[in-house]
Simulated assay, not measured.
Amino acid sequence: MIPGIGDLQRIPGTQRLLPEPGRPEAAMGEAFAEMVTRLASTTITRLETAEAVSLQGLKGEADTREVVDAVLSAEQSLQAAIAIRDKIVTAYLEISRMAI
Results as ranks from 00 to 15, higher is better:
Lys59Asp: 15
Ala83Phe: 06
Ile100Gln: 11
Val89Gly: 02
Arg38Ala: 13
Arg23Asn: 05
Pro3Glu: 08
Gly4Arg: 04
Ile5Ser: 12
Pro12Leu: 02
Ile11Met: 03
Ala62Arg: 04
Leu93Pro: 08
Glu51Lys: 12
Leu8Pro: 01
Arg46Ser: 13
Leu55Pro: 00
Ile44Trp: 00
Val36His: 03
Asp7Ala: 10
Thr49His: 02
Ala31Trp: 08
Gln76Ala: 15
Leu58Tyr: 11
Leu47Pro: 00
Ala62Phe: 02
Leu8Met: 02
Asp7Val: 04
Ala74Asp: 08
Gln79Lys: 10
Arg85Val: 10
Ala31Asn: 09
Met35Lys: 07
Gly6Phe: 07
Glu30Gly: 08
Met1Pro: 14
Thr64Pro: 07
Gln56Glu: 06
Val71Thr: 05
Asp63Asn: 03
Leu47Cys: 03
Lys59Cys: 09
Leu39Val: 00
Thr64Leu: 14
Ala81Gly: 06
Ser77Glu: 06
Gln9Gly: 10
Gly6Glu: 02
Ala50Ser: 12
Gly6Leu: 10
Ala74Thr: 12
Val53Trp: 00
Leu58Gln: 14
Gly4Thr: 04
Glu20Pro: 05
Leu72Ala: 11
Gly13Val: 03
Gly60Asn: 13
Ile11Glu: 03
Ala31Tyr: 07
Gln9Leu: 11
Arg10Thr: 11
Ala40Arg: 11
Gln76Leu: 15
Ala80Thr: 06
